Amino acid sequence: MAIYLVELSYNVDRTGREPSNPAHVEYLRELTADGVLKLGGPLVGENRGLLLYEAADRSELDGILAAEPYVLAGLVSGTTIREWQPGKGQWAPESAAAGTVR
């Protein structure tokens, strides 16, 4: 499994996203229950959101993002995706914390 840090930029403000927000929230709840979404939320003072996903590969992540209600509604103006390998801290895999992964 890979971990991906995804930043979504929106082309409308929070008020403009309100009609799609219930579907967006439900979708994120489902992904959380399935263990796919680890964290998510808005960037303070910006018209963007940051989400942390765990997926088998980039292809699976692309499918997840394609089904995002904000994407389907045309509210996302840009997406930045980075694969991330946590190596330190409380959320790092046990093998990384032991120093076996860099």
Rank of each mutant, 00 (worst) to 15 (best):
E54W: 02
A73W: 03
P93G: 07
P19H: 08
L75D: 01
G41P: 13
L43I: 14
L72I: 13
E83H: 05
E83S: 05
G35T: 00
R14L: 14
V44W: 15
V71D: 04
A96T: 02
G35A: 04
V25H: 10
G78F: 03
Y70P: 03
E18P: 00
Y27D: 00
A23V: 10
A66M: 12
L5W: 10
T79M: 06
H24E: 03
N11W: 06
S77H: 07
A55N: 04
V101G: 07
S95Q: 10
G78Y: 06
V6Q: 05
E26L: 06
L52Y: 07
G41F: 09
G63N: 14
E7Y: 05
L31D: 00
D57L: 05
I64T: 03
E68C: 07
G16T: 04
Y4A: 01
V71Y: 13
V76W: 12
G40T: 04
M1D: 13
R17G: 05
S9L: 09
G78I: 02
A23Q: 12
G35D: 00
A73P: 00
Q90K: 11
P22D: 04
T15D: 15
V36H: 03
I81M: 00
P93T: 05
W84S: 09
Y70Q: 11
A23E: 11
P22W: 12
V6N: 04
R58L: 11
T79G: 00
G45W: 03
T32C: 02
V101P: 02
S9A: 11
V44H: 13
L52W: 06
E46Q: 14
S59F: 12
N11A: 04
T79S: 01
P22G: 06
V36A: 06
L65N: 00
A98K: 09
